[in-house]
Design a protein around this nucleic acid. Structure first.
Length: 482
RNA sequence: GGGGCCGUGGGGUAGCUUGGUCUAUCCUGCGGGCUUUGGGAGCCCGUGACCCGGGUUCAAAUCCCGGCGGCCCCA
């Protein structure tokens, strides 16, 4: 794994993370409202690069972008019983306009189902309108009562992605979930993030959903972070919001619906999963600066390292690489630390020796290794190295994830995992809620669910549920979560 | 849901127990100058803070109440 140390990263992750968010210029947490932070330019640029990919994927898969208002009337919000039960404890209410109380109170959207679906019932008329696929990236508000954490648990999720679809059958909705998983997989590869997908247990599905699926990554401290969800609503919302279409035979049917959700947690995952003691390590795909060139001037040298650096930069820029020349009047060492903290994947150092010998020194952020290359091959070498960095980040994270998944047969073994290095425990389960909740309590962990797709979720022959002793039907996953 | 700790320049802190030279400490950052430049060099000058509101008192960073904000533990 190279010489990059990840001691503080792994042993004191919480503090490492909090500090890094600020010093690396991602967010300023000092805004005086709990759980609402300010995006700083550098952090926002990274997030925008992630979103660019998401927009492209939406375009590719035929989703149209929309923008709904942030306010939802109480009357719309209350139409789906389970949904309101799930969210009423954490919505912000708007009760007054100026000095007057509102006749119909408004909520700040915690998610947009209830804002969108009354409109869906107006828009969707015929089977020809289906499948109907829209998405938006907006801010949503949830009054979190647990302690907040930047990008991870916030009261204003400022980059909330939500795709909403409507279909003429359960099967077509299922096909949509598959497509969502494929999109998610492409995004995860783009971010060099290995992940697992689980079907949530009944007691933890999204309020109003028929079933929910969640994608998790492994954080440095062995806890998991959910970074994507897909829900099949069946006709639950369609019935509550009267979303019907006319079939080819003239009958009226309720649509089947799905949603797919993600947020700035994607960035949190990138920062946490790939980081090390020196700061962030950004995958080249989303790094605002992919290559930083640091000129190393020498007092009694004729060589113009600055001109040489600019020349290299121009050539790389022309080749489509995001490059920056750091010409600040400070010592080179200081610059190295700055850009390492900010996660720039590749640094090029050019001093008088390099100018004279027509060379350049490439320093990788992930492994901290340095190699000297010929100036004439610079574009090829940089491309090759950026690719290698991306691949290495993915492999390193994959090993970490896989090394933190353990399959056990008993509660005792599972407990031992959580006492030791944590991670994800896979344990046989009969499928009964009572036994699942019992295990959550015993392990002081959450059931993520069963592996998805469900073909992978079946328990091997002869395995017993460690709580009730009956034949196990599934493999259930448990973890401490964020 | 229950309990505890905390809030001092941009960041990190000393001071609070026992109110009074606190005109508030130190490190860092930031602006300027000299000097330096293959991994955070040094020196000099400058800059900048007691979360908000109320109370007690001759006197509040310090004590009390409330609010806002942050952190931790338990369920």
């Amino acid at each position: 794994m190279g010489k990059a140390e990840r001691k503080r990263w792994s042993e004191d992750f919480s503090e490492w993370y909090n500090e890094l968010i600020e010093v690396a210029g991602i967010q300023d947490k000092r805004y005086p409202v709990k759980g609402m932070n300010i995006w700083l330019p550098y952090g926002l640029k990274i997030m925008r690069n992630i979103e660019k990919f998401i927009h492209a994927e939406m375009e590719r898969t035929g989703h149209e972008e929309v923008l709904f208002p942030a306010l939802i009337p109480e009357t719309e919000f209350q139409k789906e019983a389970e949904h309101i039960k799930g969210f009423e404890g954490e919505v912000y209410w708007i009760t007054h306009a100026g000095l007057d109380p509102l006749d119909v109170r408004l909520i700040l959207r915690p998610t947009s189902e209830t804002a969108m679906y009354s409109m869906f019932s107006l828009w969707i008329r015929s089977h020809a309108d289906l499948p109907f696929k829209v998405y938006q990236i907006v801010n949503v508000y949830r009054y979190e009562t647990k302690h907040t954490r930047p990008l991870i648990r916030v009261r204003e999720i400022s980059r909330f992605f939500e795709a909403h679809t409507a279909h003429d059958s359960y099967e077509d909705a299922e096909r949509q979930i598959k497509e969502d998983l494929e999109i998610f997989d492409r995004l995860a590869k783009f971010l060099a993030l290995p992940y697992i997908v689980s079907k949530r247990p009944e007691w933890d599905k999204f309020p109003g959903a028929y079933y929910s699926v969640g994608a998790e990554v492994m954080m440095p401290d062995g806890r998991t972070l959910q970074i994507g969800t897909m829900h099949n609503y069946r006709q639950n919302f369609a019935k509550a919001y009267n979303i019907q279409y006319e079939t080819e035979t003239g009958d009226h049917e309720y649509v089947h619906q799905t949603t797919f959700g993600m947020s700035e947690r994607l960035l949190a995952a990138v920062i946490a999963v790939h980081g090390d003691d020196r700061g962030m390590v950004l995958p080249p795909t989303i790094a605002p600066i992919q290559v930083v060139i640091v000129p190393i001037p020498k007092k009694d040298s004729e060589a113009d390292v600055f001109a040489y650096a600019r020349e290299l930069a121009e050539e790389l820029r022309t080749a489509g690489i995001r490059v920056h020349v750091d010409e600040r009047d400070i010592r080179p060492g200081r610059k190295y630390y700055d850009w390492e903290l900010k996660g720039v994947p590749l640094r090029i150092e050019v001093g008088p020796r390099d100018v004279e010998g027509k060379k350049a020194v490439l320093a990788r952020r992930d492994t901290l290794e340095k190699i000297t290359v010929e100036r004439d091959n610079i574009v090829g070498e940089v491309r090759k190295t950026l690719d290698a960095i991306h691949e290495n980040l993915y492999q390193r994270a994959k090993e970490f994830l896989e090394g933190h998944i353990k399959r056990v047969d008993t509660i005792e073994e599972a407990k031992a995992v959580f006492e030791d290095r944590r991670g994800i425990v896979e344990i046989p389960w009969c499928g009964e809620e009572e036994c699942g909740l019992k295990m959550e309590e015993e392990l002081d962990a959450k059931m993520l669910g069963i592996p998805y797709p469900e073909e992978d979720a079946k328990a091997p022959e002869g395995k017993k549920c460690p709580v009730c002793g009956r034949e196990a039907r599934f493999i259930a996953r448990f973890a401490r979560t964020y």
